[in-house]
């Protein structure tokens, strides 16, 4: 048994959210620069130039890459031999979010009672926390500030098993096509296939935490990612929807076995400002 103090978790979460909001990860920046080289559309190239320049201004001035500093999504992979002391783990995470958004001049976008009052909670809490118990004695924290424009384009389809691979491809490509210019393309397409309805949706979101463009370790899944990316980039939406070749930087897919009657497919789009950071404690 290894002990991790809740205060350490708070510090880590606060630091990760600030860093994620100011500095685009190197992998994402490299993918955007590659997209800039490959894009044929002049308007698309101009949009990519602005996005790349924006990243260097944000990092240099320590101001958020995007004014939408997101819902604070946090993934916790907790080793089963880890004990958290000095407070409740989720409270520690939320304290980290509170601190990052206050000290970091990040926009607080969470509202209470979304169906009625919609009153701002004032500190961007609560975080949306996903917890996984894993072997070992480490605690891995991944933060993903998720912007509203892209999140609002998420989709879930409970397909018939007979629709098969083609059904999956069509569902994902259609989701990107219908989202059009709204999710701030070039996007990263998160896909979850299998499990149950909520499992598929959770996998689609978790898939976005992968290093951009890194293929699935499963060969068949990796081939499907590649095929869907190819199809998505034939849609013509292009950077910011101005028309062009690069509508998506990558497709990341996670899968899980499903019931004999089911083929759940979920899509979660990540805008080009793909801000995620992780640390292992």
């Amino acid at each position: 048994m290894r002990t991790v103090n809740a205060g350490i978790v708070t510090d880590a979460v606060a630091g990760l959210f600030k860093e994620a909001n100011y500095t685009l990860g190197e992998g994402v920046l490299a993918a955007l620069k590659r997209a800039r080289r490959e894009e044929e559309s002049p308007a698309g190239r101009q949009a990519l130039d602005a996005i790349i320049e924006n990243a260097s201004i944000a990092a240099e001035e320590k101001i958020p890459l995007c004014q939408d500093c997101g819902t604070a999504v946090v993934f916790l992979e907790i080793g089963q031999d880890v004990h958290i002391d000095g407070g409740y783990l989720y409270a520690a995470v939320n304290e980290g979010v509170r601190r990052a958004y206050e000290e970091g001049y990040l926009r607080k976008s969470m509202v209470e009672r979304p169906f009625s009052d919609r009153k701002n909670t004032g500190d961007n809490t609560p975080a949306v926390i996903h917890t996984y118990i894993v072997p070992g004695d480490k605690l891995k924290i991944t933060v993903l500030p998720k912007g509203g424009g892209a999140e609002n384009m998420a989709k879930l389809g409970m397909l018939l098993p007979a629709s098969g691979k083609k059904g999956v491809i069509d569902f994902v490509v259609d989701a990107v096509n219908e989202a059009w210019s709204n999710p701030c393309p070039p996007v990263i397409v998160g896909v979850g296939i299998g499990g149950t309805a909520e499992k598929a949706v959770a996998m689609a979101k978790h898939a976005l935490t992968r290093k951009v463009g890194q293929p699935s370790p499963d060969k068949e899944t990796a081939a499907l990612e590649k095929e869907i990316l190819h199809k998505v980039n034939r849609l013509g939406i292009g950077p910011m929807g101005y028309g062009g070749r690069i509508t998506a930087l990558a497709v990341h897919m996670e899968t899980f076995p499903a019931h004999i009657t089911a083929l759940p497919v979920a899509v979660n789009l990540q805008c080009h400002s793909a801000r995620h950071r992780e640390v292992v404690l």
Partner: peptide, 8 residues
């Protein structure tokens, strides 16, 4: 349109 995500 302005470029989304170019707020800085």
């Amino acid at each position: 349109a302005a470029v989304g995500g170019a707020g800085a």
